[in-house]
């Protein structure tokens, strides 16, 4: 296992930008891949695909419900459609369509929600998707992915295209800290242990993965050995990694840029309760909507920084018997 100084966490591309790049690569190798957008292609980065493959790109206008169902129709006819919008619009305006036209008949539709969480900043809560993981995970048969950085997004987009069945991929607006080397292999449903540790496990997804690595480094200086696991797949959950973490470290913190109600944390808690009950703490947005500010100010105010993960870890370690 790596020493805790391994991660320098330089800023890389935003995961939405990495998605756009991966989509173009997919388009070059797989003629069945098509893309749909709802007037946000410059923001979701489907614009690159649209430019290179205009005949395989469908601009749906500002009509997300229609976009999701058109995508389902394309999938039913053998295409591999990637429908992209801000996560808040794809999931909330398209939820009925995701349920009835994608999940229920189990069609091969991929939905990419960018601008997730509160780190979009100044645009404020109407654009902030803080319930998307909860909604997506509630759909039977859906695979739900939440990559933390550029490399993991690129690899998971590729894996999504190869996976037969509906997939939701969560992407963010800001540049994301680089965690993985290019070319690193991923497997849907298999969490990745980034740091080993024995006193507590920090389970994180998205932007909170880098924050959790930073938290583990701070905790190490205090003599607390923290394991860090990247849950890039929210559904299906890596039950084995969760059970092992609960058994071996006896305390778990889950950190996510999402409402604490209904997100990754409660899903992990369910598995902990079923396998090896252990004290847990949750870092997430607490039963509220955020506001306009810079991303940095918001992550600070709403308690989604390394400092907050470390504080939760100290609390949970104290609760161990």
């Amino acid at each position: 296992m790596p020493a805790k100084t391994k991660y320098e966490l330089p800023l890389g591309a935003a995961t939405r930008e990495a998605f756009g790049k991966a989509l173009v690569d997919l388009g070059r190798t797989n003629p069945d891949v098509v893309a749909l957008d709802a007037d946000l292609s410059k923001s979701t980065y489907t614009a690159g695909f649209a430019k290179e493959f205009p005949s395989r790109f469908i601009e749906c206008g500002i009509a997300e419900s229609n976009m999701i169902a058109i995508g389902a129709g394309l999938a039913s006819a053998g295409k591999i459609p990637f429908a992209a919008s801000f996560s808040v619009f794809a999931l909330n305006k398209g939820f009925e369509q995701l349920r009835v036209t994608a999940a229920y008949p189990n069609v091969n539709l991929k939905v990419v929600g960018t601008h997730s969480g509160i780190s979009i900043g100044e645009d404020g809560p109407s654009q902030m998707s803080v319930e998307d993981l909860s909604l997506a995970c509630s759909l039977p048969g859906f695979t739900v992915l939440s990559p933390a950085d550029e490399t993991s997004m690129i690899e998971l987009v590729k894996l999504s295209a190869a996976h037969v069945g509906p997939v939701f991929i969560r992407a963010g607006r800001p540049k994301a800290a680089r965690i993985y080397q290019a070319g690193r292999q991923f497997k849907i449903g298999q969490a990745i242990e980034l740091l080993e540790g024995s006193d507590v496990t920090l389970i994180a997804t998205g932007l909170l993965v880098a924050e959790s690595i930073r938290a583990a480094e701070a905790l190490e200086a205090e003599g607390i050995s923290a394991r860090v696991i990247d849950f890039h797949t929210i559904k299906p959950l890596d039950r084995e990694a969760i059970a092992r973490a609960a058994r071996e470290t006896g305390a778990i913190v889950v950190a996510e840029e999402h409402l604490a109600d209904g997100g990754l944390g409660v899903r992990i808690a369910q598995v902990v309760a079923e396998t090896h009950p252990a004290p847990m703490e949750f870092v997430g947005i607490q039963n509220t909507y955020a506001e306009s500010a810079t991303p940095e100010q918001l992550l600070d105010k709403y308690g989604l920084l390394a400092r907050d993960v470390a504080a939760a870890a100290r609390r949970v370690v104290k609760r161990k018997r």
Partner: peptide, 10 residues
Amino acid sequence: SLGLGMSLAA
């Protein structure tokens, strides 16, 4: 919308 998607695929 579904029919539209299927027609576009065709």
